Amino acid sequence: MPNCQLDHIAITATSLEAGADLVHEALGVRPLPGGEHPRMGTHNLLLRLGESVYLEVIAINPAASSSIGRPRWFGLDSLALDAASRLATWIARTDDIQASLAACSEPLGKVEPMSRGALNWQITVPEDGSLSLGGLAPALIQWEPGAHPASRMPDLGLSLTKLKFFHSEPERVTAMLQSLGMPGTDGLIEVACLSGGQSPYLAAYIDTPSGPRILSGAIL
Rank of each mutant, 00 (worst) to 15 (best):
P154I: 06
R116T: 00
A88C: 09
G69D: 03
E25T: 13
N44I: 01
G19K: 09
D21V: 15
I97G: 09
P212W: 05
T161N: 14
D95A: 15
G50M: 12
P154K: 10
A137E: 08
A83S: 15
L16V: 00
E112T: 10
G28A: 12
G181F: 05
Q5N: 10
A59M: 01
G117N: 11
G196S: 15
L46C: 08
A84M: 09
S115V: 00
I97Y: 10
A147Q: 14
A59Y: 00
D82K: 03
E36R: 15
R30K: 15
L133N: 02
S15D: 05
G184L: 05
D82E: 11
T161E: 15
Q198D: 05
G34L: 11
L220V: 07
V173S: 10
L194N: 07
D21W: 01
P200F: 07
L27A: 08
A92E: 04
P138V: 07
E127W: 02
E169W: 01
L101I: 08
I219S: 14
G28W: 09
V191I: 11
H167G: 08
E25C: 02
L49I: 10
H167C: 06
L45I: 00
V191H: 09
G157K: 12
D21Y: 00
D207S: 15
L101T: 14
P212M: 07
V23F: 03
I206Q: 12
I68R: 08
R172G: 00
V173M: 04
N61G: 03
I189G: 03
S66D: 12
T89S: 11
A84P: 10
P145K: 08
L136R: 09
G50Y: 13
A203Q: 15
I9D: 03
L6P: 11
A80C: 03
I9H: 01
A139E: 04
A92Y: 08
H37D: 07
A18E: 11
A150T: 13
P209I: 00
P149K: 12
G197T: 08
L163H: 13
L180K: 11
I11M: 05
D95V: 04
I60Q: 14
S78A: 15
I206C: 13
A18N: 12
L81V: 12
I219C: 10
I68F: 04
L101E: 00
I11F: 03
L220Q: 14
Y201D: 10
D96C: 06
W73L: 12
L32Y: 01
T124S: 13
D95Q: 14
C104Q: 08
Q142M: 08
G157V: 03
E169T: 12
H37V: 06
W73C: 06
G146C: 11
M176E: 04
S132V: 05
R116I: 00
M40D: 12
L22W: 07
L131P: 09
F165R: 01
G146R: 09
I123G: 02
S85R: 12
T89Y: 06
K164F: 01
A99K: 14
L6Q: 09
L202F: 03
L140V: 06
A102K: 12
A20Q: 12
P62G: 02
E171T: 14
G35S: 04
I9S: 03
P183G: 02
R116P: 03
P33S: 06
H8L: 10
M153G: 13
P62N: 02
